[in-house]
Each structure stands twice: as C-alpha cells, then as structure tokens.
C-alpha cells in the first residue's frame, strides 16, 4: 500500500503553485493600475484614531509572545516526531505504544513544569 509514490507526483502541485502566484501577481498589478491616485500627506499617514501619530510601531512587545513561540517550537517538534510513529502504529503494537508513552510522559513532565512555573498564565 502506497509504495508506488515518485517525485513526479509533486509536479501538479508545482503547476498549482505557479497558477496561484500568477493569480496573485496579476490581481495585485491590476488593482495597482486601476484605482485612482490622488495621494495627500494626510491620507498616507498611519491611522491612530484621528490624533497625531506618536512615534512608530517599531517598539518592543511583551516577552510572553516570544515565550509562546519558543514553547511552540519545542512542542511542535515532538508532534512531528509522532507522525511516523502514528502511521506505523499497528506494526509496532504494544511495545511501540509503551515506548511512545514513556516519551510522552517526559513531555508531559515538561508541560507540568511549564504550568507550575506560570509560563502559560496571561492574567
């Protein structure tokens, strides 16, 4: 089952990539040339609820977001690691199940540490 896959199977995907790029590029160019162009300084200023712009938005943001990003990288690698295991689950049987849950146990220990540490609290 499923052993006859070759790289040429991906060729239609490449066609669709080009079709999508073409569609996006043509639409972007069309909207650029069709619309009127009467630009004034006020129009091109950033929107800040109607008041004068105060500085710009190149400012530091809460470190919480970076923490979430790092945690995502850690956990997503584990998720990707589980895919091949899931596909071949029946062949591995009970041994594979126990081995994977030893691994998930360590993962959950880390998750529990995160919870206790308050890394996921936003209040």
């Amino acid at each position: 089952m499923g052993n006859s896959f070759i790289p040429a199977d991906y060729f239609p995907i490449v066609l669709q990539l080009f079709a999508a790029i073409g569609f996006v590029a043509v639409t972007m160019l069309a909207t650029h040339y069709i619309g009127p162009k009467r630009k004034t300084a006020d129009k091109l200023a950033n929107f800040e609820c109607g008041i004068e712009q105060q500085g710009d938005a190149r400012s530091p943001i809460s470190v919480k977001y970076f923490l979430v990003a790092i945690l995502f990288v850690l956990f997503d690698v584990e998720v990707i690691f589980m895919y091949p295991w899931a596909v071949n689950f029946r062949e591995f049987g009970i041994t594979g199940f126990l081995e994977m849950f030893t691994f998930v146990g360590f993962l959950l220990a880390g998750f529990f540490y995160l919870l206790k540490k308050g890394a996921l609290d936003w209040e």
Binding site: A30, T31, H32, I34, G35, P36, K37, R38, K39, A41, K43, L44, A45, N46, Q53, D56
Partner: peptide, 13 residues
Amino acid sequence: KLFTKEEIIPTHA
C-alpha cells in the same frame, strides 16, 4: 468596488 478603490501605502510602512 475593491478593485477600483485607491491603493494606499502609508509613508511609514
């Protein structure tokens, strides 16, 4: 309507 609207790119962007 969306096609024929003016395209705004803010000066700070």
